[in-house]
Write a protein that binds this DNA or RNA. Structure first.
Lengths: 147, 147
DNA sequence: TATTGTTATACTCTATAACTATA
DNA sequence: TATAGTTATAGAGTATAACAATA
């Protein structure tokens, strides 16, 4: 397979990985659309399991803090989150899901899991084998070389 | 693991899959940024291996045709693609990579492959095992149920 | 009439820079 | 001075609706 020289197989793994990623993204977008959410609002919901400051959230998202302002403005307008003033530091706003946000988060997590299961046929796979592959890919900073 | 009842393991597989997807996305964004491209422009480049009409491209991207106009406008401004009039149907514009676009596409594909390999430690994995898992997930429409 | 691509419009997401209110 | 969050601004991506050219 692949190029018939040195790294035979690696190229196929990369292609397969990008294809799986694309399908996962498609599933996530479908679930978001079903609830009139953008993929980013869905991600905000998914990541906000525990209350965090705006700042910390920007870091989790790896984006500029000014982004979070708009993102949260819209989520707040939808009644999904609220900004709670921090007692110990009056500069800080703590992001918290509302009851509506928590319920929607729960619903969405279930739907994402179910749709992924169906779209990728996970239920018919050998979970142990799949997990060993996925776990290997996400084990900290695996490779010796950094880049 | 997971919830300790019925589908033990499936939940972990879903979580692992979303984590891997997130890492892949991060790698792709890094490569795009390195070349002053948005992730969408990089995707356009990756998908345009073979010339296609604007219409067909919109379908490949699963987006509205009006989107492709702007996307291609910007790619054209960067000198990466060109609109070639179709001989047989004068309504149609064929999208083609320029030489610059082809070169950049090649470079980017290599960088994505290399970065993914490093970031996910693919080179140290059992390719056959990984491929069997990825292939299972992307085999047509696997599940009996559609959703 | 139907189809291809575009334009006009509006909204979301994103970053940069400048600002405020705290600390 | 430094930090948390916001605002102002600008550009990219996206969809909807209306349109021109062609079929």
């Amino acid at each position: 397979m692949s190029d018939g020289q040195g790294d035979a197989g690696l190229e196929d793994v990369v292609d397969g990985l990008l294809e799986v990623t694309s399908r996962v993204h498609h599933v996530v977008c479908s679930v978001a659309a079903r609830h009139d959410l953008t993929p980013q609002q869905l991600e905000l919901l998914r990541m906000l399991a525990v209350p965090v400051s705006m700042r910390a959230f920007a870091e989790e998202l790896s984006c500029d803090p000014s982004n979070v302002t708009g993102l949260v403005d819209r989520a707040e307008r939808l009644g999904l989150v609220e900004r709670v003033p921090d007692q110990s530091d009056r500069r800080v706003r703590i992001l918290k899901l509302t009851t509506k946000g928590r319920n929607l988060r729960s619903t969405i997590n279930q739907e994402v899991a179910r749709s992924l299961t169906n779209a990728l046929g996970l239920s018919t796979d050998d979970h142990a084998k799949v997990m060993s592959v996925l776990a290997a890919m996400t084990s900290a900073t695996k490779p010796p070389r950094t880049d």
